[in-house]
Structures are given as C-alpha cells and as structure tokens.
C-alpha cells in the first residue's frame, strides 16, 4: 500500500467508527426516550468501536514509524490520531446512556421526563455530531467551524434542563435516584456535543494547522 492508500484506509476505518457510534447512540437514545418496556437493541457494542480505534491508531503509528510525513500528510495522520479518541468516547457515552436508562427503567417511572426539551437537546447534539462527521469526511472547514460555534448553545440547553430537574427534585415530583440518573444522561449528551466540537476542531487542524486559537504547525 502506498501512503495515499493507507490514508484512505484510515479514513474508511474512521467512517466505519462514525456510523457504528452513530447507530449505537441512536439506539441508546431511542431506548432512553421510549416510555414502555422496550428492550435495548443490542446488536452493536463498543467492542466493535474499540477495534476500529485500534486499527486507526495502529495504522497512524505505523505510518509515522515508516514514513517521514510532512505538510498536509503530517496534519492528516496526527489529526486522525487525535480525533479517533473523540469518536471512541462518543461510543462510550452511547453505552453510558444505555446503562443509565436501564437504571431509570428499573425505577419504573418516567413521569419526570420533559420530553420536548430533552428531545430538543438530543436532536441538537445528534445534528452536531452528524455535521462534525460530514465536515471531516468532506474536508469542509466552514461546516466544522460552524459545529464548533454551537458549543455554548448546548451548554445553555443543558443548564436549563438541569435547573428544571433540580426544581422537580426539590418539589418531590421526582425521586433522588431518578434525578441522579437523568442528570447523568444530560451530562453524557453535553459531553457528546463536546466531542463533536473536538472532531470539528481537529478537522480544522488537518486543513490548516491550527487548533482553537493556536497555530500548532
């Protein structure tokens, strides 16, 4: 394989990770937002995601070991090496959401769920992840920069949901256990948005060498 083929292989493996984690996440959230006794559709797990991560890391490191990469190639290899971690984390959080949902389901109530506001956060976060992925795959820096700019909006939605949950807990509308597991789910969503932002920022780095406000190379 020549370098171009290897870079393509890494890109393909990352795309595979994207679609695995995206589907894993979708199922976890469907499970979370469902109100009945639906079972989690468990055909995807994080072991598959982890295997892809290993592949990406191994190929990137092997390129760095064998080749002397410069300019765009260097940014591509190191950028992929960085953003693969963020994708893997998103996979972890998909599993975390599933686990928290199981706890919530075992409590046997979903009366405290603010479905509309939660759904809004879920949609927003998923769109950020999709856009981050599209930005990376298409090498679209404008889209990546847009994703990165949504960081604060997610934080606001998260804070508002959390405040609401605290109020409901104080008023005795929801139990302490319910509040704790629900706040975890909110936190995971907020973290997923952060990782989407990271992916977008590494995409910008791959294109032009700066990350956030710092020119790295």
């Amino acid at each position: 394989m020549n370098l171009d083929q290897e870079l393509k292989f890494i890109g393909d493996e990352l795309e595979k990770m994207f679609s695995l984690t995206r589907e894993f996440l979708r199922r976890s959230l469907v499970y979370y937002l469902s109100d009945g006794s639906e079972r989690f559709d468990a055909r995807i797990d994080d072991a598959m995601v982890n295997a892809c991560e290993r592949n990406v890391e191994a190929w990137c490191l092997s390129i760095l070991l064998r080749e002397k990469v410069y300019a765009a190639d260097l940014r591509r290899v190191t950028g992929c090496l960085k953003l693969v971690t963020d994708i893997e984390r998103i996979g972890d959080h998909a599993r975390d959401i599933k686990d928290a949902t199981e706890k919530l389901k075992s409590l046997g109530t979903s009366q405290g769920l603010d479905r509309a506001a939660t759904q809004a956060l879920v949609d927003f976060v998923l769109r950020m992840y999709d856009d981050a992925v599209r930005g990376f795959v298409r090498y679209d820096v404008a889209l990546a920069e847009e994703v990165a700019s949504h960081d604060n909006e997610v934080d606001e939605m998260y804070e508002k949901l959390l405040a609401d949950l605290i109020a409901k807990t104080k008023d005795g509308v929801v139990s302490a256990e319910y509040a704790i597991y629900t706040s975890l789910v909110y936190k995971y969503l907020e973290r997923i948005a952060d990782h989407a932002v990271n992916i977008a920022e590494w995409t910008v780095f791959i294109k032009n060498g700066f990350h956030k406000d710092t020119v790295i190379i």
Binding site: L3, V69, Y70, A71, A72, D73, R75, G209, I217
Partner: peptide, 19 residues
C-alpha cells in the same frame, strides 16, 4: 524551514516533500 515543511506555498514543494 518550519514553515516550508508544514505549509509549503508551492504545489511542487508539497509534492516533493510528501513524496
């Protein structure tokens, strides 16, 4: 040198250093 090997301005330079 640091600029040249990270952000070459000319395509011919980039092609040469990236093999």
């Amino acid at each position: 040198t640091s600029e040249f090997f990270s952000h070459p301005k000319e395509k011919a330079s980039e092609d040469y250093i990236t093999g």
